[in-house]
Nucleic acid binder design. Sequence first.
DNA 1: CATGGCAATGAACCATAGTTCATTTCTTGA
DNA 2: TCAAGAAATGAACTATGGTTCATTGCCATG
Lengths: 213, 213
Amino acid sequence: MVYRRTPAVVTRLEDNRSRILAAARDLVAEGGWQHAHVASVARKAGVATGTVYRYFPSKAELFAEVLANVSRRERDVVAAIVDGEGTPSVRLRGAVEAFAKRALQGRRLAYALIAEPCEPEIDRARLVWRGALCEEFVRIIEIGQQQGSFRACDARIVGTCVVGAFMEALVGPLAPEDLGDDAVAQALIREISDTCLAIVALSRPAGRLRRIA
Amino acid sequence: MVYRRTPAVVTRLEDNRSRILAAARDLVAEGGWQHAHVASVARKAGVATGTVYRYFPSKAELFAEVLANVSRRERDVVAAIVDGEGTPSVRLRGAVEAFAKRALQGRRLAYALIAEPCEPEIDRARLVWRGALCEEFVRIIEIGQQQGSFRACDARIVGTCVVGAFMEALVGPLAPEDLGDDAVAQALIREISDTCLAIVALSRPAGRLRRIA
DNA sequence: CATGGCAATGAACCATAGTTCATTTCTTGA
DNA sequence: TCAAGAAATGAACTATGGTTCATTGCCATG
């Protein structure tokens, strides 16, 4: 019996795997789901079509992993801000703005991962990761409520609303046709984060108000 | 030369057309996109597969029309409320609650039309109609702003946020697995409409506040 | 250097469903 | 009743692209 997986072989296998993943991600980032075929991925990764199937059981799982990788990164960015410094309001705004800014930077990929029509199988994976992102916003809302900075509400539902709000507002501007003026993007981001803050802001007491010392 | 389209024939043709549309809609309402095949539609409508193609150029266009019909109805309901009686706040809340309530009543269909993963071609049609719905919310926001009831903001962006917020919060509960407790649904609807109102509420002046006469 | 076993290859395969179209059936007006 | 033309039929066709697998090549051991 000969041939054992020497470190060299293991490395090569891992290289292949990540090269395929990278190729898949890049393809999506360049042309969306339209041209994200297994054959294209293989070509871009410099392997044969069949090789892809030595690393991933199906197209759907390959792209689900791409989606997971990218989404996890985004979620981590948001999570770091949620767990970071500042008042809950500052953190919520920061999280929303960070997400929006990053999305607008890599528009094509963001559009594909968030909103572009794609195969049902892949679409399903999106829902999962959107849920994970939502968790982070639920957390910051709960923190804000504990500190008395945010209004009393069902954090789970309202967190979902927050995610829905900024996602929806981003979709249009993310669309590939949109070229993206930077000043417009800045204004958009600000408007969106204002809106998200408004969602959780303490509600005004009834009646007229007057500022006090 | 004989055979002209007598009124009877015209009627039969129209009947066929709407029977096919109804069958398609019902299929989606029952089982979502998974089983919405042209052959199934034909069977349910009591015609041959090929007949469907005498009335619709493609599967995508058939279902796009289904989507348009249902969506238009929803938009009209919202539009009527937007143009109806009451303060802008009351109308906004009413519109959101009406939409949510109707969606929760016909869960399966609503889920399919709003969120269920489906073929890219059909998904594209969704975006269009979601935009039309959004218009109505932009309108009520603008009305509210003119009357000084809503905060100053970009109505277009914030309207999109409102739609995104309640859509997203509805998606989970719409999912086919969810059986739907009525009390829970009521609470959900209330929470969502509260949230949507918060989005446009006049922002609190900075500093601490105290109620005055 | 021989050999056993694993990885890579990519052309062929196949599954699914949307479409087509030659044929049949129906309707109308003479 | 018959002819002409339109509508309906549904089995066959086809396009697409994911998946397979017999073959080849490569590498580590004895």
